[in-house]
Amino acid sequence: MSVMLEFRKVSKVYYLRRGFLAPKKPFYALRNIDLAVHENEVLGILGESGCGKSTLARLALGLETPEEGEVLLEGINFSALSEKERRKLRRKIQIVFQDPYASLNPRKKIYDLLAEPLIIHQLVPKKDLRARVGAMLTKVGLREEDMERYPHQFSGGQRQRIAIARALILSPRVLVLDEPTSALDVSVQAQILELLREFKEKSKLTYVFISHDLPLVLFLSNRVAVMYLGRVVEISPAESFMARPHHPYTKMLLESVPEPDPYKRKLPKVKGEPPDPTLEFSGCPFFPRCEKALSSCEKEVPGLREISKGHLVACHSL
């Protein structure tokens, strides 16, 4: 199993100004991320807002450059490349965003939206473009004639199919899915999930599936990485995730998800809120909310340790 995409000690800093005259403060969106995505797997990235999961996606696509560390796609470092080479490499990794109302240019026909990547990367002779776009549309469950229409003529679910078609038309190796169903109703979400699942079964695509929704991530993924405040706190195979989550934050997440079953009703005691990410602190990011915190948690950041095969946890109390 070869590594498709790799993050090596990656940190990403943004500088934020809080108020008109206030000095800019560094804000670590990602801190020291070590993560490998293997060929042909679905890696789920689970986390709440502000945990850095979308920044991770932007770095994976080479849309942002990390301040520290490197991001490698099939062993090639994005930041070491020229803009031209970077663009070429990007063909191999594509993304589907959350909001299909914002990610499709409303003034372009579906044909133009789907043909543009092919033209930019000069993959298909001009005379074959229409056939290629038509074939892609049928693959995602739309009709060939839909290429003559505009995005506003489609529903949210159909637009997300178009976004998936646009990503897949370049035959990428890795598909990053950043909350691809969060804007959709459950019945439409199921259609998109099934489409993604079927594509996965048929091809050797690698997925990075980013979501805040735990059951959703576990449904689609082989492995799950849990993020909290810019760090990966746990990586686990999806099968054993429910049975033995080890990080206290992962446990909190699992307890918090309400079960769609009145016989399993629970009202857990959940402590605190995530702290302001611009504040500097030296210890474990979860320390202020953690039930199991030790004195060392306040001073020292725990690193990821393998506690059983393929299961890594960043916690001092284990």
């Binding site: 199921a190 576990l218 995730f241």
Partner: peptide, 20 residues
């Protein structure tokens, strides 16, 4: 509605066609 909920134990979903 209950069948289309993604659950960890489910292998696949049976989505409804179309939309509201």
């Amino acid at each position: 509605l209950l069948e289309v909920l993604p659950r960890p134990e489910k292998k696949s979903l049976k989505p409804l066609p179309g939309q509201v």
